[in-house]
Write a protein that binds this DNA or RNA. Structure first.
Lengths: 240, 240
DNA sequence: TCGACCATCGAACGACGTTCGAGAGACTAG
DNA sequence: CTAGTCTCTCGAACGTCGTTCGATGGTCGA
């Protein structure tokens, strides 16, 4: 099940004699790819940069992955393993919806730290067994609820869609200045807030109504508030 | 308010004499960009392809937009105008949450038809006034509800995040075969379903539990089910 | 008629993903 | 020990992309 296609070198054999040429392994390639992604996001992950880090040629990477898409898919699934172990303890509790919530929050936090994760999550269930395992883990909590299979299917899809969607929105914003530390998050938000305040109050009453909330908002709070609405609806549906 | 930056040619003046060189306009550039996006998605939108369609050189496009990002932002906002007019009638009804739902569904349907929309929605509120107007429209419905400003802010963010997130998920899937019509949607889903059925039932009980639902599911139904959960939670919060 | 300005465009640059074929190194069979 | 095979590496190249530059055509006001 979930067998990966293509060549599967077990590991980068630890050179018995002195190696003249660089030696890689699927593990090393993906680990270094994740490192690049973490440092500067998706645009930083190029085959040339990756080859440079690994101390080899560009073409070597193609021995392990067939394309950049596959590299991205595998990198995503690689870091998802951590989410999987971090959410292990949120199973089999008294309140399935509380477990569901804890898993979702953990996943969300992982995406906040690695915004690139959202874009490649669960694109290919063959290359991404961990994504499927996370799906399964969420589903198992919903199984505890008194719902029809269809309702359960919809519930998990909704939670996952909400987590990934919200996180993706947040992850694309910081344009450079915040990342470089040249400007604080508050000042960054304040600039947008001022822009909003300059709008015509007659045409944009709601924007004016929430601009202060926006200026001081915390992304994680915002996410949890939305998630709680969704889960409240689910709890209602499960009749509890 | 919301003044666009950069040069703003009013329109492509309709050649009084016979023009030897091509003549564009911001409107024409963006309309053609949208056409390319609609035909084959984001990868199809290249400056060379666009210039070819417009019957001119590549560099000319840079007179109207500063970068591809700006082109995509403007294209997104351009099509959002249609969503705006289509949702006009869903305001001021008896049930604000029903209006909220109708607007969200309309927006979702627009993204399903144009999957590329999700990725560029509301990235730059200066270049995308229509995105802000849609945000405002959703917010005005929530204003009718008995909530705190913060709750209203969170509610709109949640709905928007859910819509965009879910739609983005759906939009990235069809890998080519479905688009080309070589394979039906049912057969496409069936292939995944079979893959899921081959998984170990002990390790993936939930996946087995919902595989039939997955095989026959409709994306729009799935979205509406999730949205209704979210709105049920919101209705509960608004106390009635 | 002359200059100033708007708009267009050919050509080039550098970076990217990807491919190809040659060859190094390690293992196995005889 | 040797010949052959298989795994893995790598330099060089191809085509495409976003983007820039400088020249030049076209239009209009003075």
């Amino acid at each position: 099940m979930l067998v990966m296609a293509g060549p599967q070198p077990v590991a980068g054999r630890a050179a018995p004699g002195t190696r003249r040429r660089a030696s890689h392994s699927l593990e090393a390639v993906i680990a270094e790819a994740v490192r690049l992604l973490d440092e500067a996001g998706e645009p930083a992950l190029t085959f040339r940069a990756l080859a440079g880090r690994l101390g080899g040629g560009v073409a070597s990477i193609y021995w392990y992955v067939a394309s950049k898409d596959e590299l991205l898919d595998r990198a995503s699934d690689h870091v998802l393993a951590e989410v999987l172990t971090a959410t292990e303890r949120f199973t089999g509790g008294d309140d399935p919806i509380a477990d569901l919530r804890a898993i979702a929050v953990t996943f969300f936090d992982a995406i906040v730290v690695r915004p690139w994760l959202a874009a490649y999550f669960m694109r290919d269930t063959e290359l991404q067994p961990n994504a499927l395992r996370l799906y399964e883990r969420l589903g198992e909590q919903v199984m505890e609820l008194d719902l029809t299979p269809r309702q359960r299917f919809h519930a998990v899809s909704a939670v996952l869609g909400f987590v990934v969607g919200t996180a993706a929105d947040l992850g694309q914003q910081p344009p450079q200045e915040v990342v470089d530390g040249l400007i604080g998050r508050e000042a960054y938000l304040a600039r947008f807030a001022d822009q909003w305040r300059r709008l015509d109050p007659a045409e944009f009453p709601f924007v004016h109504h929430v601009v202060d909330e926006f200026a001081g908002h915390d992304d994680a709070d915002q996410f949890r508030a939305g998630l709680d609405l969704l889960l409240a609806g689910l709890r209602l549906q499960a009749g509890g």
